[in-house]
């Protein structure tokens, strides 16, 4: 092994560890901030208290956990098919000029600040959804806008994954006279599956982490949602909403929501990657 190879090896591994270390630093920070509340209240009460009124001593986070799961999974249900379709579109269906434009549009979508998405949802989409009843600020509105926000992640990663399918496989299929969709279905999608799944996981976690747009659109009432049209508050919206004015003890309670969110994300990620490994 040459000297350059060794340097490369060291640098790349140190980088990998550094990247991973950021998570540990953040986790440590969250635990540190949440400790006073956990010590005083205990994790159990965050699941069993009658309601969420932190200033009156009620700390039930369960409705927020449900709302977080509903909006994030719903967002991926919207973004997944659209994103994969747009990845296939640019490679197999669109004329080259349109493909370039489509890519560009998806990239712009990625750069629109969440507050602008939130404004658009609040001023344009919510009044439309309000026709179904209520104020239009509910889980459905939040899910739709969240889906749009994570769409670029799925689209770009699907695009890359499809691009990585060996050219010979596709040419081979064409030589066999396979039709376009047959090629896509039998060869391209299986080959690019792991890349697409990586994109979906990234989109899912991104949806979990999004704050501002959800805060502006979900209605934020802490009650167990009964339908997609009921308002709900996600864990991170909870931090953003109440942190601004919180006094010391209230602040610590809010960090518990952050901690629980990371817990939820880790469980989801672990479950998905387990299933992925066993099915492969």
């Amino acid at each position: 092994m040459s000297r350059n190879d060794l340097i490369l090896k060291i640098i790349s591994r140190v980088s990998a560890l550094l990247s991973a270390a950021v998570v540990l630093l953040i986790l440590r920070f969250l635990i540190h901030e949440a400790t006073p509340a956990l010590r005083e209240i205990g994790l159990y009460r965050f699941l069993t208290d009658p309601s969420w009124h932190p200033l009156s001593g009620n700390f039930n986070l369960k409705p927020m956990i449900v709302a977080t799961l509903v909006t994030s999974l719903g967002a991926v249900l919207i973004a997944g098919p659209l994103g994969i379709a747009s990845g296939l579109f640019v490679h197999f269906y669109a004329p080259p000029a349109l493909a370039t434009w489509h890519r560009r549009i998806v990239e712009i979508l990625a750069g629109i600040p969440s507050v602008v998405f939130g404004l658009w949802g609040l001023v344009v989409l919510a009044p439309i959804i309000a026709n179904l009843g209520g104020s239009g600020q509910n889980l459905l509105t939040a899910t739709v806008v969240l889906g749009l926000m994570v769409l670029p992640t799925v689209a770009v990663l699907s695009d890359n994954a499809v691009a990585a399918v060996p050219r010979e496989a596709i040419q081979g299929a064409a030589a066999l006279g396979m039709s376009r969709w047959a090629t896509v279905w039998n060869i391209v999608l299986p080959e690019s599956r792991s890349g697409i799944v990586a994109g979906i996981i990234l989109a899912l976690t991104r949806a979990f982490g999004e704050t501002m747009a959800v805060l502006m659109l979900a209605g934020n009432v802490v009650e167990m949602p009964t339908s997609l049209l009921s308002p709900g508050r996600t864990l991170n919206a909870n931090i953003a909403l109440e942190l601004g004015y919180a006094s010391t003890s209230h602040r610590s309670v809010l960090f518990v929501s952050g901690l629980i969110l990371m817990l939820v994300v880790s469980v989801m990620v672990t479950v998905i990657s387990r299933r992925r490994r066993t099915t492969q």
Partner: peptide, 17 residues
Amino acid sequence: DVIVGENEHAIKTVAGT
């Protein structure tokens, strides 16, 4: 029915409902 944060958020909500 709706919980909001900022004043502008409350105003936009009432203006739209």
